[in-house]
Simulated assay, not measured.
Amino acid sequence: MKNAKKIISALMLGMFVFSAVGCDMIEKTPEGIAKQVVAKVNDEKITKGDMDKLLKQSGVIASIEQQYGTNYSSNEEAMSALQQQKEQLLDQKVTEVLVLQKAKELKLVPSDSELDKQVTTQYNATKKNYKTESAWNTVLKNAGFTVADLKQQIRNGIIEQKVLNYIYKGISITDAQAQAYYEKNKSQYTEQPNTINVSHILLKTEDDAKKVEARLKNGEDFAKVAKEVSTDDGSKVKGGNLGNIQQGDTNYDPTFLAAAFKLSDGQVSDPVHTQFGWHVIKCIKKTTYPVKAFDKVKAEIKSTLLKQKQQTKQQDTINKWKKAASITKYEKNL
């Protein structure tokens, strides 16, 4: 069952990770509520019914129930979190609708016969993971899909990929660009990740950090000072020691890591400012490895830079299309 959800979730990623005023009596019926407009993209409407279905298919409701319980509607924090998720999904849905509209405008939509063939191929490839028709139908039902829903999602994904290919056309990375990136980022391409065993003392102000720096220069023990004045409760009990950290570890502030890796064994830094405050950093032991030759990593670098360039072009293009479109949202109807 978990595998089924993963497969369907992957298909949901095909969606771009790019006014309802009337008679109250009509609006309060289930049918009327489902027809309430939550957004308009040019002349195309997105309804509350569309979004309620998407909420289930994307797993948002299941996630909220898991975190807050099935009676989450009485929990203010849960409802706030749910509203944020709804608004994010609406943004994604608006983008999807706009992109599908642009696909028609740019004549990028494949013929019906070609689309049907590709949809059938992808649908069958997903379905074959289940031994029986009953097991497959159960998976779809639990995920909030009908066969028609899933085929439509696959169909949209195919069209969206055509739009991406259109956006990405002409984007490339030269060997010279890759070489320049390599020269500036050699530490990312070592035979093994460089590591550092590091300690720090975290202070609230620059003045506090300078006072600590002076104490250390006068010969006081780093660990002793850390235990006395560091505001990092997690490390101060260990004399400020953070243990071994790999270069590029995303769990740490980039400015902090850059300053730490500039140090030699036993060296203490000048005060370093990050989003968390002011640090005085000590390198206990740094372990470095040889840098791989450029030819060994050229393809990897070009792939990385290409994806970055494509993502930037994609976002710029979508933003440009959104500015030119007529888009109205009615979040109160979500």
Results as ranks from 00 to 15, higher is better:
residue 282 K to V: 06
residue 304 T to I: 04
residue 221 D to Q: 12
residue 124 N to Y: 10
residue 302 K to S: 13
residue 161 Q to I: 06
residue 210 K to C: 00
residue 93 K to S: 08
residue 326 S to P: 00
residue 26 I to K: 08
residue 313 K to Y: 04
residue 228 E to V: 05
residue 329 K to E: 15
residue 48 K to N: 12
residue 82 L to F: 09
residue 292 K to D: 04
residue 63 S to V: 10
residue 331 E to Y: 12
residue 256 F to G: 03
residue 47 T to M: 00
residue 148 A to Y: 04
residue 232 D to N: 12
residue 298 K to D: 06
residue 300 E to I: 11
residue 117 K to L: 14
residue 53 K to T: 13
residue 49 G to R: 07
residue 127 K to P: 06
residue 209 A to D: 00
residue 162 K to P: 06
residue 246 Q to S: 13
residue 275 Q to T: 13
residue 237 V to T: 15
residue 199 S to V: 02
residue 125 A to H: 13
residue 77 E to M: 07
residue 43 D to C: 02
residue 57 Q to G: 04
residue 113 S to R: 10
residue 294 F to L: 15
residue 102 K to W: 01
residue 8 I to F: 08
residue 39 A to K: 01
residue 266 G to D: 01
residue 115 L to A: 03
residue 34 A to K: 06
residue 106 L to I: 06
residue 45 K to M: 04
residue 102 K to V: 12
residue 42 N to F: 05
residue 92 Q to K: 15
residue 318 I to L: 14
residue 288 T to G: 09
residue 220 E to M: 11
residue 125 A to K: 11
residue 8 I to Y: 06
residue 200 H to N: 07
residue 21 V to S: 08
residue 190 T to M: 08
residue 112 D to V: 11
residue 255 T to C: 02
residue 11 L to Q: 11
residue 35 K to C: 01
residue 164 L to Y: 15
residue 181 Y to M: 09
residue 180 A to W: 05
residue 165 N to L: 11
residue 168 Y to L: 00
residue 159 I to R: 05
residue 242 L to H: 10
residue 243 G to E: 11
residue 145 F to Y: 14
residue 12 M to L: 14
residue 318 I to V: 15
residue 295 D to I: 10
residue 8 I to R: 06
residue 298 K to A: 09
residue 285 K to L: 07
residue 182 Y to G: 08
residue 225 V to T: 12
residue 297 V to Q: 04
residue 205 T to K: 03
residue 19 S to P: 05
residue 56 K to S: 14
residue 126 T to W: 05
residue 201 I to F: 01
residue 221 D to S: 08
residue 45 K to H: 10
residue 265 D to I: 02
residue 142 N to A: 07
residue 4 A to N: 02
residue 325 A to R: 05
residue 123 Y to G: 06
residue 166 Y to Q: 09
residue 109 V to M: 12
residue 167 I to A: 00
residue 15 M to K: 13
residue 311 Q to M: 10
residue 329 K to S: 08
residue 161 Q to K: 13
residue 67 Q to I: 11
residue 133 E to F: 08
residue 186 K to T: 15
residue 131 K to I: 10
residue 256 F to A: 01
residue 222 F to L: 01
residue 156 N to T: 05
residue 171 I to E: 03
residue 262 K to P: 03
residue 122 Q to C: 10
residue 289 Y to H: 14
residue 333 N to E: 15
residue 170 G to C: 05
residue 273 H to Q: 13
residue 261 F to N: 01
residue 243 G to V: 09
residue 64 I to L: 07
residue 320 K to Q: 14
residue 279 H to T: 04
residue 1 M to L: 15
residue 271 P to L: 06
residue 125 A to Q: 12
residue 285 K to F: 12
residue 153 Q to Y: 11
residue 328 T to Q: 15
residue 89 L to F: 10
residue 158 I to T: 13
residue 316 D to R: 11
residue 288 T to K: 05
residue 241 N to P: 00
residue 152 Q to C: 00
residue 229 V to P: 03
residue 136 W to S: 00
residue 232 D to P: 01
residue 20 A to T: 06
residue 133 E to R: 11
residue 315 Q to K: 15
residue 205 T to M: 05
residue 35 K to Q: 07
residue 106 L to M: 07
residue 184 K to H: 08
residue 206 E to Q: 07
residue 133 E to G: 07
residue 47 T to R: 01
residue 194 N to G: 00
residue 315 Q to F: 05
residue 71 N to P: 04
